[in-house]
Computed example of a mutant assay.
Amino acid sequence: MASADRILGTLEFLREAEKLKCTLRSGFTSDGRPESTAEHTWRLCLMALVFADEFEGIDLLHLIKLCIVHDLGEALSGDIPAIMQTEGSSKSAQERADLELLTKSLHAEKCVEILALWEEYEAAQTPEAVLAKGLDKLETILQHVQGKNPADFDYAFNLGYGQKQTSAHPLLTQIRAILDEETRARLDEETRARAEQKRL
């Protein structure tokens, strides 16, 4: 049976992690509301689950764990959209420091496990981490294509976004081709709408 201290520490961690529900991303939901990092993480995990049969030899539980923790540090300092990140930015270092702070109330073994999962995701050296990185990019693009975005949303950025990560597995490449086609269609639609607005 778990000790009272372990339960209390875990509940404290979960209270802090709840902030991920309030951490907004650059994407918008299909009804036009800003998307939270927690929502992105949920659908990333769902993508891993529903495509799992296509990933031969992959440990699904491990893949899902990587997906769950990949943006966990953003609960404290927020998300920096890819379009605003610069070469040599300290986003990764900040997320690592925030994750250490976030997990400090957990018992030592769980804290070490979560930090190790995050580091594995960042390094993208294992098959599961490579897939988690690729699916992360694809989920973001899927949301951008599906979302009810503001008029100045930059769809063109997505056409170059995450190319390396989404070409790491044949299925990721297939999904990417479909989403790129949808992105181009959305870009054309928005370009026509802006041109029409100028004429009025």
Rank of each mutant, 00 (worst) to 15 (best):
2 A>H: 15
5 D>F: 11
7 I>M: 11
11 L>F: 15
13 F>V: 09
13 F>A: 04
17 A>V: 03
19 K>W: 12
19 K>T: 13
20 L>V: 05
26 S>N: 15
28 F>C: 07
31 D>G: 01
38 A>S: 04
40 H>C: 05
42 W>I: 13
43 R>L: 11
46 L>V: 08
49 L>R: 12
49 L>C: 08
49 L>A: 10
53 D>Q: 13
58 I>S: 02
63 L>P: 13
67 C>Q: 04
68 I>N: 07
69 V>A: 02
73 G>W: 00
75 A>E: 08
75 A>C: 14
77 S>Y: 12
77 S>Q: 11
77 S>K: 05
79 D>H: 07
79 D>V: 15
83 I>T: 13
84 M>K: 14
84 M>Q: 15
87 E>N: 11
89 S>D: 15
92 S>K: 06
93 A>F: 03
94 Q>I: 10
96 R>P: 06
100 E>Y: 13
103 T>H: 05
104 K>R: 14
106 L>H: 07
106 L>W: 07
107 H>E: 06
109 E>L: 12
110 K>C: 12
110 K>I: 10
113 E>I: 09
117 L>C: 04
118 W>P: 08
118 W>K: 06
120 E>Q: 13
121 Y>A: 00
121 Y>K: 13
122 E>T: 13
123 A>M: 12
124 A>W: 08
124 A>R: 15
126 T>Y: 01
129 A>N: 08
130 V>Q: 01
130 V>E: 00
131 L>W: 00
131 L>R: 01
134 G>E: 02
135 L>K: 03
135 L>Q: 00
138 L>Q: 01
138 L>P: 10
140 T>A: 09
141 I>K: 03
143 Q>N: 15
146 Q>S: 11
149 N>E: 02
152 D>R: 05
152 D>F: 05
155 Y>Q: 04
158 N>R: 03
159 L>R: 07
159 L>Y: 04
160 G>M: 04
161 Y>L: 06
161 Y>W: 08
162 G>N: 10
164 K>T: 14
165 Q>F: 03
167 S>L: 09
167 S>G: 14
169 H>K: 03
170 P>A: 10
171 L>E: 01
176 R>T: 04
176 R>D: 02
176 R>N: 05
177 A>T: 08
178 I>T: 10
178 I>W: 07
179 L>P: 02
180 D>F: 03
181 E>G: 12
182 E>F: 07
183 T>P: 12
185 A>C: 04
187 L>V: 12
188 D>N: 01
188 D>F: 00
189 E>Q: 09
193 A>S: 14
194 R>M: 12
197 Q>A: 13
198 K>E: 06
199 R>E: 07
200 L>M: 06
